[in-house]
Design a protein around this nucleic acid. Structure first.
Lengths: 129, 129
DNA sequence: CAGCATCCTTGTCGATACTG
DNA sequence: CAGTATCGACAAGGATGCTG
């Protein structure tokens, strides 16, 4: 990859795919959505995101930290307190992701209607799990 | 879910999760990105998205069609021609997703830099596959 | 050209138990 | 509180071969 490249997510080996892989993750979207409001502690995130296991939270946070999207701060209280917050870079992404969450909330009914139509026409359950 | 609900993606059973599940898919983002430019045929998509298998393309397109985001049109040529295009609903989502692709292209270098920093500090390979 | 059906390998993810 | 470690079930997804 040259110095001033045309990054192209459609090329298999293009590094922009790593960003898509990060975004293309339900938990990432939800976590960054919350951190976009305000910093949170580990267990706060765990409580606020239903269905999220502690393993996935831990794993996802570590990846987000590695990608420079989230900053992890440890406070030497007893017991120890850890706060997660967006980095400036993370904030720019969180804004775009917030748009997606809003889109979902605004258009879920249209999507559900389309699904009912489709299922009725195909007569059967082409429905995924 | 009531008639005028506060859809909340943070609730496990909230239907907005289905939209997130759709978005939370690398191929969805890339496919809708292309269809946002112009309609394409099946094999055109297959060729333009490197690393995408025919199985995943087929599967993803069917889901997108079911969700009312993509319209599938069959032309009775021989051999048969099939065109995929965004629905009006799909276009509104594709715009948001295009933002993400642009974000990835604009910020990939910052992300990579953060990764190098992180890997250097942790001394080792916390890197995922 | 535009797919579907099958096999089979890999990875994802939840559950559980334990640590500083 | 904030995690790590391990196991096992499940499903995603690639490869291959076949169809209208």
């Amino acid at each position: 990859m040259p110095a001033m490249p045309n990054w192209n997510a459609y090329a298999a080996q293009c590094p922009t795919r790593v960003v898509l892989d990060r975004i293309a993750d339900k938990w990432t979207v939800l976590i960054l959505g919350l951190l976009g409001q305000q910093p949170r502690r580990f267990n706060a995130l765990l409580r606020e995101i239903e269905g999220l296991s502690q393993k996935m939270l831990s794993q996802t946070l570590k990846r987000l930290e590695r990608d420079g999207l989230v900053r992890r701060t440890v406070f030497a209280t007893t017991p120890v307190t850890v706060e997660y917050a967006l980095t400036p870079l993370g904030e720019t992404l969180a804004e775009s992701l917030a748009t997606l969450i809003r889109w979902a909330e605004d258009n879920i009914e249209a999507v559900q209607a389309a699904q009912r139509m489709f299922d009725a026409k195909t007569g059967a359950d082409a429905r995924p799990a």
